[in-house]
Design a protein around this nucleic acid. Sequence first.
DNA 1: ATATAGATCTCGTCA
DNA 2: TGACGAGGTCTATAT
Lengths: 250, 250
Amino acid sequence: MTMDHHEFKDKILTAAAKNQVIVFSCNCIVWYSGKAESYLGPGDRLVVIKADKTILVHQPSGAAPINYMKAGTTVNVNLSDEGEMFLNCSNIPLKDYLDMKINHVHFLESYGLEDGQSIQIAGTEDDMSQMLYENPHLIEEGFKPVSREEQTKYGYIDVMGTDNEGKLVIVECKKYNADLSAVTQLRRYVEKIMASKGLKRDAVRGILASPKIGANAQQMLEDWGFEFVSVRPPKYLERYDKNQKSLADF
Amino acid sequence: MTMDHHEFKDKILTAAAKNQVIVFSCNCIVWYSGKAESYLGPGDRLVVIKADKTILVHQPSGAAPINYMKAGTTVNVNLSDEGEMFLNCSNIPLKDYLDMKINHVHFLESYGLEDGQSIQIAGTEDDMSQMLYENPHLIEEGFKPVSREEQTKYGYIDVMGTDNEGKLVIVECKKYNADLSAVTQLRRYVEKIMASKGLKRDAVRGILASPKIGANAQQMLEDWGFEFVSVRPPKYLERYDKNQKSLADF
DNA sequence: ATATAGATCTCGTCA
DNA sequence: TGACGAGGTCTATAT
């Protein structure tokens, strides 16, 4: 495909005005200025301009965009007298600027995409805290949950309850590996509760519930008198088989 | 553009075999199973298959992909007897599976992208800690930095030094707003140093250096006897003007 | 491989 | 709008 600069400019501006999703591949140089500044030398990239004017610049490898602009960006194409082409993007409220010198366009497509669907996810930390709330014996025998996802001034405590001696128990759960920040997070909640209820340290138990915990995190947990309970994340829906038998389970 | 299933399958597999970057727009349903499970009902999406077999599924809005697969994924296209088409992606080592029922393809392009460039970024937290190391008066008069980015057993301490009384000072810097986790992070470092050097609490000062700090974080900081120093993130390169005069500065 | 922390994090949620 | 925390975070770096 050959595409001259004027054709590129026309296609971009027309599609952008219609809030189409635009994608093109090109050889380019990229400058960004805003919360940080960056420069990316010449190379081939894939550029996406979304319906909400989110802009993504992707290299041929890697999951994350190498450069991007948030939704609400203004897009312009400018041609210089010397025959150079620039894609100039600005988001004034955010003080973000992204500029590309486009040396060569490999292809360009645009289309009006319609999608009102929201994703449904199972197996999150929220599912895990719900599992613990509904199956308190997974923490220990005698544990009585009182609240879940308590997002008050005490903090966003996953599960709170009492043990068989009536002592307050605060549970922080992690889906995967519990690390140092998980321990400090638990500690922060315990201290908030202590302060707000005027309790002493030995009147509150802190429990970190996760599949596993790192050695350093374990040490810090013990140093602070907290406990670790090994809990597997909730069993997800069965992987649907090749006949899609269980697709309807969603 | 009209494209039948066999043509789609052929184009995908051919381009994937050549490690081209593939992008197509389609109406589809998406299932994911791996670290979690998800379902996304029918809608229009943009799908990218990169040279390293990273796969991204994007909705028309938003910066983040709604589904993705990490590099090294195996891609297949399967046609059912009933005329249905599926893009089946699997990453066996990661136990990740992504499957799409593709109802209609709006467009498809692929191209062999070459890009050996690495991005250059200014204005990161690392730049900020370097600025403080080289301009210690920004912390306070008499501050003498000793180490930077100390990633030893003591932790990843941004800047460490001594004040004009010879007391140990630990600085944690944040580019933007310092929040509760920044305070607990600082606290963790101070405690590690205290423990490793056998120092008492009043022998170590902890300073949080950032442009601003939240009210709750400020309170926690004071509760723990730490200090806040207002520091602006490093001045970036001047925004290049419209004549690209300063582009060569990179 | 694991551990640790930053990120122009993004995204959702709630006061 | 800001604050707070989760994320299939991703990515880079060090051990």
